[in-house]
Design a protein around this nucleic acid. Sequence first.
DNA 1: CAAGCCAATATTGTTGACAATCTACTGTAT
DNA 2: ATACAGTAGATTGTCAACAATATTGGCTTG
Lengths: 230, 230
Amino acid sequence: MDGIHKPADQLFENSKQTASARIFNELLQAILSGQLIPGSKINEAELAARHGCSRGPLREALQRLEGLHLILREAHVGARVVSLSDQQLTELYQIREVLEGLACRLAAQHMTERAKDELRRLLDTHRRYLEDGGHQKYYPQSGDLDFHYLLIRSSQNALLLRQLGDELYPLLQLYRRQFRDSGYQQPQLAFKEHLHIAEAIIEGDGELAEILMRKHIARARKRLKHILTT
Amino acid sequence: MDGIHKPADQLFENSKQTASARIFNELLQAILSGQLIPGSKINEAELAARHGCSRGPLREALQRLEGLHLILREAHVGARVVSLSDQQLTELYQIREVLEGLACRLAAQHMTERAKDELRRLLDTHRRYLEDGGHQKYYPQSGDLDFHYLLIRSSQNALLLRQLGDELYPLLQLYRRQFRDSGYQQPQLAFKEHLHIAEAIIEGDGELAEILMRKHIARARKRLKHILTT
DNA sequence: CAAGCCAATATTGTTGACAATCTACTGTAT
DNA sequence: ATACAGTAGATTGTCAACAATATTGGCTTG
């Protein structure tokens, strides 16, 4: 019979996405990539035209972005991309500190052997990264995020994964771009801390893993604060 | 001249609210009050008619509710009120535990004398509540929330206030209704724990306050788990 | 010249109609 | 009787026009 096989691109979910969902993803990327700059005003008609849909779906996408605190809206006035203060960055790190600490504690309780192997491989990759190239500045941001992400996923707490991955991390990414924070400036030290955290988790010591992760993030926060105040 | 004086209800801000914002609040209340029952399907046309607006603003309100994880939507299928599992309730308490712990630590650092007085007065009110009426079941839910809310507000962390107050607490309220958890079953014990937490905060001992709050919530979680599994 | 009002314009909020998709029902063949 | 295909109905997604509100610029007045 005809019509059984679908076009190739319809095998991927993004082809059947609604306009609202598609434009949301496009705007999200635009914000996180810096294409839409913090503080700039958003014109609904113009944006809708640029993304090839009417204002209805665009407004639904804006509503979603507002829920993620990536834009601010005021009735009858309009929306603008958030522009974040030092204070808010500190607040974000404080929350991240306790939530990722929780993730570590839970990961230590729940991590499977398979996930532990994945963790070991990831750290080996990072180690080679630091040994091979002497260019320490290129400590992989995504790789680092992979470390944190792996632990969060291993926590077996779906709500926590959503809170951190879907809500806090995009904000963090935006902050980093806005403050031109390219990531770790002492990659060897960071890697060492990662090693200790991983060790605690693999041994199943959740309380230690939580403490270490909290100190790890608190240190990054203090470093950031120091940079911002000077 | 005629028409200067507006009807009384227009003196309040909700009169100038957009239809989208108004319907969002109405739906939020409907969900939290149990008027819209968990798992039930939402019909856009019907709901819009019932709340006196068209589907546009209604859909924006639904998008916002979805961001709070109070409803689930599927493209071309529709939205339904979330129905939550024991597992998710546990996850929620785990997150609440560390976030409110953080709130206590920060509150101990930042609380003003004025806020400390407010805290003392609140606890006095609770004490009288327990002493006067022998009906210990009536430990005020809102009053308890007031205790936690006061601490969260005192943390001076706006993002934390948003995460807990706007996102986690509505979910918690929904859970409580769904599982018919009417609140503390050992109000004297809870009050005693509140006293200790408050004492640590007033003394400025953030670390102790954090530990006590975490234990306080962890205890509630374990009690809940025990009830659910029996 | 500054401050404040007023109209013209631009932008956001809302609506009802139309298109796309899913759901439920009926009829048919095995 | 059951399983399946097809169709009619219901529901969601999208659009373009209209209403309500804010912003801009010019004008008047002190």
